[in-house]
Write a protein that binds this DNA or RNA. Structure first.
Lengths: 147, 147
DNA sequence: TCTCGTTTTGATACAATATACCATCTAGAA
DNA sequence: TTCTAGATGGTATATTGTATCAAAACGAGA
C-alpha cells in the first residue's frame, strides 16, 4: 500500500469536492491538509489550534463543520475511541489500533501485522459490513512504568 | 460461555468491593445493576436517567463517579465509540461491535461469529496486549432505508 | 446496638466539547 | 464582472464531564 503524496491527496480532494457539488474553500483545504499531515488522532479543537496558526481568522465552528463534511465525503474517519471527545483520522489505508486501558491513548498498528479477518456474509442484525478494524487492548509503556 | 444471573453478578460485585476496601453503597449497586440489565451501550447521562427513576434523589455527579469506579474495578468497560460521549458496557464476555458509519450506533456481535485473532507476541510500541475487539464498520438497516 | 472516623454522596459551580442561528462573505456559474 | 447558493464567522446555547465542599452513609470497633 503506497502512501500518496500530500500534494496528490489535495488534488484528489479538489476533484472529489467538485464531483460532490461542494465549493472548494480554503478552509476545507487547510483543515484537510492539516489532518493528512499529522500522524496522531486529533480532536476538533486540536485541529482548530494548529490550523488557526496559519489562518488566524478561521472560526472554531468552521473547523467542526469542515471535519463533519470530510467525514461525509469519506476522506476522513471519526475513530472509535474510549475518551470524551471525538477524534479524527486522515489516513486512507486501513489500520488497527492499540488502545491503552489506563490513559486511553490510541496508537496506529499496521494492518499487515495481523492475519486478515473474513467479513461476515449476509447482513448480521441488518448491518451491511464494509470494513473492519481491530482494537488491541492493553497497557502502554508509560502506564506500566507508573505501577 | 454461560451468562451469570443478575443476582449472582451483584453478589460477586459486593465481594469485589469489600476486597478492594470500598464501601458497598446502594448507589453503586443500583448503577451496576442498571448496567448489567441493559443491552445497549449507554452514556453516563442515559444511566442517570434510568437510575433516577427508581432513585430520584441520586445525583448526576454520583452516577459519573460510580461509573468510573466500576471501570477501575474492572467490572465495566468504557467502549470505543465514534460519538461525542463516553459509553459504558457491563458485559463480561468479550464480544465484537457492529458500528454504523452514519448514525454511529454500536451493536454487539458474538465473538464466536468470527475466527480468533492471534495476539501479537512481544510488546509492539511498548504495549502489552491483553485482549482485542473487532469493530465491523458499515451501515445499519435504518440508515440504509433513509437513502 | 451505638459511636466514630473515613469515605461517599448531593448540590452547585465551572470547564470542556459540540451545535444552532443568522448576518455577512465567498466560490463558481452565467 | 455580476449574481446567487451555499459557506463562513461570531455569538449564544446545549451537552457532556470535573472540581469543590458540607452533609450523610458505610462499616469497624466498643
Amino acid at each position: 500500500m503506497k502512501k500518496p503524496s500530500v500534494q496528490r491527496q489535495l488534488e484528489d480532494f479538489e476533484v472529489l469536492c467538485r464531483e460532490a457539488g461542494l465549493p472548494v474553500t480554503v478552509q476545507r483545504q487547510v483543515v484537510y491538509e492539516d489532518l493528512i499531515r499529522r500522524c496522531d488522532h486529533p480532536t476538533a479543537d486540536q485541529v482548530f489550534e494548529t490550523v488557526s496558526r496559519q489562518m488566524p481568522q478561521i472560526s472554531r465552528t468552521t473547523v467542526y463543520r469542515v471535519l463533519e463534511t470530510l467525514v461525509e465525503l469519506g476522506v476522513v474517519r471519526r475513530i472509535c475511541h474510549p475518551g470524551t471527545a471525538v477524534r479524527f483520522d486522515g489516513r486512507h489505508e486501513p489500520h488497527h489500533h492499540l488502545v491503552c486501558r489506563e490513559c486511553q491513548k490510541v496508537i496506529d498498528y499496521e494492518r499487515s501485522a495481523l492475519p486478515a479477518v473474513p467479513l461476515p456474509k449476509g447482513k448480521p442484525r441488518g448491518f451491511v459490513v464494509e470494513d473492519y478494524s481491530i482494537q488491541l487492548l492493553g497497557r502502554c509503556a508509560e502506564c506500566r512504568k507508573k505501577r
